[in-house]
């Protein structure tokens, strides 16, 4: 598989009167062609800002990408002109957001929104674009597409709007789709419909997918590789199997332990992570998980653990005690 996207030491900070929010603070990861990569973590850990940074959609001010590189195919997206990045956005990389209503234009028909993009980026005539729009709506499971094209977003349910967003994402045949919490606002049955649809389409069309979520079940089902984020950094990265069955970071372990699970016998009591996530404008030296970490040793308070390979493989963790964590997991299962 060839590499499509390579992010290296990306830093995006927000500068406000109250201080600097280090929303994304040195993340690196790759996405291969046709691969599904997940970014998982709790709210405020920097998932959305990471995604927006890739397409240079972070509002400046207050936000700014202050370091790193984002190579897509053979270009550094951070070096492109505004014109060039707009072209990439519509055509090569598409985005699907959590709340489709905010990304659909309420006064344009669904059809017009689809055809406009295609006419712009693909040089299609109106007729060709309409035919393609009908085909796309059918593909994402919207029945009676000819009639639906003439309707407005408010005529659609949340699940159907998300299908339209997927159709829009697909219309220019992108190589990468970034989906930021695409199903968080939806019911479980509709969530399953939308995710299966995305999986099916990305596999069939060979499109790579970055899926951002806080739902560990979704990640387990759909992701080839997983990046776990905490406080603006990636603290563990590996295949889904590595992350769920051989976690090497206390935060990953704690996340897995804190949720009640339907696939296991009922537990008498849950095992929560104590405390709460840190304020990203007041990060100290040392490991950002240290105040909540049961594995902490003396140096954790003064040194920040680098993201390092576990046993020389593709599994990475940023923890001085990675091996104790793995041992604890092994002992308990």
């Amino acid at each position: 598989m060839s590499r499509l996207l390579k992010i290296d030491s990306l830093q995006t900070h927000f500068f406000s009167a109250a201080g600097v929010v280090k929303a994304v603070d040195g993340i690196s990861f790759d996405v291969n062609q046709g691969e599904t990569m997940a970014i998982v973590g709790e709210s405020g850990c920097g998932k959305s800002v990471s995604a927006l940074s890739i397409l240079r959609l972070v509002a400046d001010p207050p936000g700014r990408i202050i370091g790193g590189s984002i190579r897509f195919q053979d270009r550094d997206l951070l070096k492109l002109s505004d014109e060039e990045i707009r072209e990439v956005r519509g055509k090569d990389i598409a985005m699907v957001f959590q709340e489709p209503m905010t990304s659909l234009n309420p006064v344009l028909t669904i059809g017009r929104q689809l055809t406009e993009t295609m006419e712009q980026h693909l040089d299609m005539t109106r007729g060709q674009a309409v035919a393609r729009a009908i085909e796309l709506l059918g593909m994402v499971g919207i029945s009676d597409p000819e009639r639906r094209l003439r309707q407005y977003p408010h005529h659609f349910s949340g699940g159907m709007r998300q299908r339209v967003m997927i159709a829009m994402a697909l219309c220019c045949e992108p190589k990468l789709i970034i989906a930021d919490e695409p199903t968080t606002a939806l019911d479980v049955t509709v969530q399953a419909q939308i995710l299966e649809l995305m999986k099916d389409l990305t596999q069939r069309l060979g499109v790579a997918l970055i899926i951002i979520t806080h739902n560990l079940g979704i990640v387990a089902r759909y992701a080839d590789r997983v990046n776990v984020m905490y406080a603006g950094r990636i603290i563990e990265s590996g295949t889904a199997h590595d992350i769920y069955h051989h976690p090497h970071h206390p935060y990953t372990l704690a996340l897995l332990r804190s949720v009640p699970r339907m696939d296991q016998p009922r537990r008498a009591r849950l095992d929560p992570v104590q405390g709460q996530p840190p304020d990203l404008s007041r990060l100290g030296v040392g490991c950002s998980f240290q105040p909540r970490c049961g594995f902490a040793i003396a140096r954790c308070a003064s040194q920040s653990p680098p993201l390092e390979r576990i046993d020389g493989g593709d599994h990475l963790a940023a923890c001085f005690e990675a091996h104790s964590v793995a041992e604890s997991m092994a002992r308990s299962s």
Binding site: M160, T189, A192, G217, A220, Y244
Partner: peptide
């Protein structure tokens, strides 16, 4: 059936029978 569980091995082995419609 629609709730995915946090275990990739289990999830990949599980057939998803998804209810249609809304």
């Amino acid at each position: 059936a629609a709730v995915p569980v946090p275990d990739p091995d289990l999830e990949r082995a599980r057939a998803h029978r998804i209810v249609k419609g809304e």
